[in-house]
Simulated assay, not measured.
Amino acid sequence: MRFFECGIRYEKTLENGMQKKVTELYIVDALSFTEAEKRVTEEMKCFISGEFEVVSEKITKYSELVETSDGDKWYKAKVNFITIDEKSGAEKKQAFFYLIQANDIDHARKRLNEYMKGSMADWECEALQETKVMDVFLYSTEEQKDKEEDLKKICASPGIQKAAKRFVDSIPDGQKVTISSSGFKDAVIDKTHGHEKDDA
């Protein structure tokens, strides 16, 4: 699954009774832009009585969400995982982004520290800032299981397996390729000589 940011434009009634066109941002988890638009449309029908439209969609860089029951804002955290290169001894940083639900920035920082407490790797929070995200809509556990089952069925189809084999065969001997996709574990195709011994 990926996290999509969707912009919803509609006419909002302000506290003074006036009507104003506004665009609000929402996050949904989905496999595609089409699914993201469908999901956010279904969710927003419960909250907006009049007409509205999805005016923007983009795939976010968030790798994980940190939710809490007592937060009404969403904060973006850039977290660097720190490793040491064995050959050069140089420090390397790899950035990951988290979306944190909290009351304020201090609460967000506390929630991040609690969430990262069990991490085995060294890390640092490089940046933490409030977003304009209004809410996040995630699949329930059962819905997620159903989606995973559907995906397994798709991957098991002969056409998909043939396409995957053609892709693997197109990778030259001696190369190692990592395929990354948000919401999924990395897939590694290793054609370097001797890797079978290393894995044993």
Score class of each variant (00 low, 15 high):
residue 157 S to H: 14
residue 104 D to H: 10
residue 128 L to T: 03
residue 95 A to V: 12
residue 187 A to K: 10
residue 37 E to I: 12
residue 176 K to C: 14
residue 77 A to M: 02
residue 8 I to Q: 05
residue 179 I to M: 13
residue 34 T to A: 13
residue 83 T to S: 13
residue 120 M to W: 04
residue 137 F to K: 05
residue 106 D to E: 12
residue 107 H to K: 02
residue 140 S to A: 08
residue 172 P to L: 10
residue 193 H to A: 14
residue 145 K to Y: 14
residue 111 R to H: 12
residue 36 A to V: 04
residue 123 W to V: 01
residue 4 F to Y: 15
residue 176 K to T: 08
residue 32 S to N: 06
residue 28 V to M: 06
residue 150 D to C: 01
residue 168 V to W: 02
residue 86 E to R: 02
residue 74 W to R: 08
residue 83 T to K: 08
residue 185 K to C: 04
residue 155 C to N: 12
residue 42 E to R: 03
residue 5 E to L: 13
residue 61 K to L: 11
residue 114 E to L: 02
residue 38 K to R: 12
residue 81 F to A: 03
residue 69 S to Y: 00
residue 110 K to T: 15
residue 189 I to H: 04
residue 41 T to Q: 01
residue 164 A to N: 04
residue 169 D to K: 04
residue 34 T to F: 04
residue 171 I to E: 02
residue 130 E to P: 02
residue 101 Q to L: 05
residue 86 E to L: 07
residue 107 H to P: 00
residue 55 V to M: 05
residue 136 V to G: 07
residue 130 E to I: 09
residue 158 P to I: 10
residue 177 V to L: 11
residue 195 H to V: 07
residue 60 T to S: 12
residue 53 E to D: 14
residue 43 E to I: 00
residue 108 A to F: 04
residue 197 K to M: 10
residue 82 I to W: 06
residue 180 S to A: 08
residue 10 Y to L: 13
residue 77 A to K: 00
residue 169 D to A: 07
residue 91 E to R: 04
residue 76 K to N: 13
residue 24 E to D: 15
residue 107 H to F: 01
residue 91 E to P: 00
residue 58 K to T: 05
residue 46 C to V: 00
residue 48 I to A: 07
residue 79 V to R: 03
residue 127 A to D: 15
residue 66 V to H: 07
residue 84 I to V: 15
residue 6 C to P: 09
residue 79 V to E: 13
residue 79 V to I: 11
residue 10 Y to P: 13
residue 120 M to Q: 08
residue 130 E to M: 11
residue 144 Q to I: 04
residue 162 K to L: 11
residue 55 V to W: 02
residue 117 K to F: 11
residue 192 T to L: 00
residue 8 I to M: 02
residue 156 A to E: 14
residue 168 V to K: 06
residue 44 M to V: 03
residue 117 K to H: 12
residue 197 K to W: 02
residue 93 K to S: 11
residue 132 K to P: 02
residue 29 D to T: 14
residue 76 K to P: 01
residue 193 H to N: 13
residue 146 D to L: 06
residue 144 Q to N: 15
residue 11 E to W: 04
residue 145 K to L: 14
residue 119 S to G: 00
residue 53 E to W: 01
residue 143 E to L: 02
residue 165 K to D: 14
residue 141 T to Q: 14
residue 191 K to C: 10
residue 45 K to T: 14
residue 189 I to P: 09
residue 198 D to N: 10
residue 103 N to R: 14
residue 30 A to K: 06
residue 25 L to I: 06
residue 80 N to V: 07
residue 102 A to D: 11
residue 34 T to G: 11
residue 183 G to S: 10
residue 198 D to V: 00
residue 69 S to R: 03
residue 137 F to V: 05
residue 16 N to F: 08
residue 84 I to K: 12
residue 177 V to D: 05
residue 42 E to G: 00
residue 9 R to F: 01
residue 200 A to V: 07
residue 43 E to H: 02
residue 78 K to F: 03
residue 189 I to Q: 10
residue 54 V to K: 05
residue 44 M to F: 01
